[in-house]
Design a binder for these strands. Structure first.
Length: 480
DNA sequence: TTTTGAGTTGTTCGA
DNA sequence: GTCGAACAACTCAAA
């Protein structure tokens, strides 16, 4: 019998379109699927609480999927290189195959793993698949790195492999003796307290099977009106694939291929589909940026922002923002949606983020950390790049004068207040006219709606007009 | 080397 | 209520 190959599942919790797994299967030797829960390698950022909940479910789904193929999932916790060294010795593996990660921490970990395996004369093979394109592949005509989205995407989208992704293997050869595995339940991924994740669980079904279903549902309906409807948070017009993508339960190439296939068969979804794929381009762009400019994880892309006077103000304000108690309904709805479901609509993410960095003048690090902890779709590169974009200090960032007005945005994108009513029930009886600015409603309107400002719902925690002026002044102060 | 066109997502103010 | 201009200047990418 050929010797065993270890397949390391890290950011790729799927069987289909998994090049590392397929390559291991074709060696015809036994395959040992492994997941290492690693919070110990250098520079590794521990997962946020919401991501841990998702990971727990996703690992179980992956294990069950593997068992259906006659295989299993071996789980260990600790430093990846140490754990794999031990496993290689235990099972006498001659190869370790993995899907490449693109964060600085992943690159370091893979480098260390590679060096260890080389010394032991064990083959280490690294495959792509978490992105559409390897970051090394996309360069300008003068061989520099792109920092502006549109030209990046013009070039990158032409380079994407549009062939059909590989299906999951039907059977995966098992070893004669399985090495021991830690229990998935013993990794410490459960939310504490336990009931904390119940509303999240009601919203999401992690795992590869569910991811494919979600894609199919999206391509069957919402994609058609995606271009316009995706901006309206009360409608379910977005794909909601982000957490599945973040954990690699479905490959971006599958999204690319399936969307293109549907677009070719149905003229009506061509526009919506193109806009959807463009969003996939943003995921790609963020990952490429972080890969090319690893410093951006802590430092602004635009240097002059190193001297930006971030406020060191009142932490009560940040607390109010986190809990959805700012007195600005669209923001409060968004922040509560995030807390309850582990996800926030993209339009509202921009409004809420703009409020933290431009109205409260808090450092984007603060918001980035909160999102990292609470989003089920938290993605290191997306999170960093998007917060820098909102703060105006990122590559290709928004102009300094773009400061979202939460009231105007609410009135524009949630006209009837449907989204606000859903997540801020204490305002449910407010008439449409005042749902986004209860503080300017007449007394009798408030009374009729059962709202007492400062008691049942907060007064605005800041004066928007002053806040906007302060933000513009702060931005003016760092100009060259 | 120099030039040129362009750059996700907005708000406010005054006519 | 609607509309257009102002809000800055800078840097990127390609020709």
């Amino acid at each position: 019998m050929a010797s065993a190959t270890i397949v390391l599942f890290s950011n790729t919790l799927r069987l289909a379109d998994n090049a590392a797994l397929l390559a291991a299967v074709v060696t015809r030797g036994p395959v040992i699927p492994v997941y290492i829960f690693d919070e110990q390698s250098p520079k590794v950022r521990p997962l946020g609480a919401a991501s841990k909940w998702w990971l727990l479910q996703s690992l179980k789904a992956l294990r069950d999927d593997l068992r259906r193929c006659g295989s299993d999932l071996i789980v260990r916790s600790g430093n990846t290189t140490d754990c794999i060294a031990k496993l290689v010795a235990e099972v006498g593996a001659t190869g370790v195959f993995l899907t490449r990660g693109y964060t600085p921490a992943a690159a370091m970990s893979e480098q260390s793993l590679h060096e260890m395996l080389e010394k032991k004369n064990v083959q280490c093979r690294r495959f792509g698949g978490h992105l559409l394109l390897e970051p090394e592949m996309v360069r300008t005509k003068t061989d520099t790195k792109y920092t502006v989205f549109t030209p990046f995407w013009r070039t990158a989208s032409e380079l994407i492999d549009a062939t059909e992704p590989q299906p999951a293997p039907k059977a995966i050869p098992a070893p004669e003796h399985w090495p021991t595995s830690e229990a998935i339940d013993s990794l410490g991924l459960e939310p504490k307290p336990a009931h904390w994740a119940e509303p999240i669980a009601a919203h999401w079904q992690p795992g590869e099977v569910a991811a494919r279903e979600r894609l199919a549902d999206f391509l069957d309906g919402p994609v058609q009106s995606y271009k316009q409807a995706r901006d309206f948070p009360a409608t379910n017009a977005t794909s909601s694939l982000s957490p599945h993508l973040a954990f690699g339960e479905i490959s971006p190439r599958t999204l690319w291929f399936e969307a293109k296939k549907h677009m070719a068969a149905n003229e009506a979804i061509v526009t919506g589909g193109a806009h959807f794929l463009r969003e996939l381009g943003w995921r790609e762009f963020s990952a490429h940026l972080l890969f090319n400019f690893p410093n951006m994880q802590s430092h602004p892309m635009r240097e002059q922002f190193n001297k930006f006077p971030w406020g060191e103000g009142n932490s009560d304000l940040v607390h109010a923002w986190q809990k959805g108690q700012t007195g600005f309904p669209i923001i409060d709805a968004g922040m509560r949606q995030l807390w309850q479901t582990g996800w926030m609509h993209n339009r509202v993410r921009m409004i809420a983020a703009s409020f933290l960095v431009k109205d409260l003048l808090w450092h984007w690090h603060e918001g980035e950390a909160w999102f990292w902890d609470t989003l089920v779709d938290a993605d290191f590169a997306n999170n960093i790049a998007s917060w820098q974009w909102v703060a105006g200090c990122g590559a290709d960032a928004s102009p300094y004068f773009r400061i979202f007005n939460p009231t105007t945005q609410g009135e524009k994108f949630d006209k009837a207040g449907e989204y606000v009513r859903r997540f801020v029930p204490e305002l449910a009886a407010m008439p449409d006219k005042y749902i986004h600015c209860p503080s300017s409603a007449p007394e009798d309107v408030l009374e009729l709606a059962g709202v007492t400002l400062g008691e049942t719902y907060p007064k605005p925690i800041i004066d928007r007009k002053k806040a906007r002026a302060a933000a513009l002044a702060a931005l003016a102060s760092i100009k060259n």
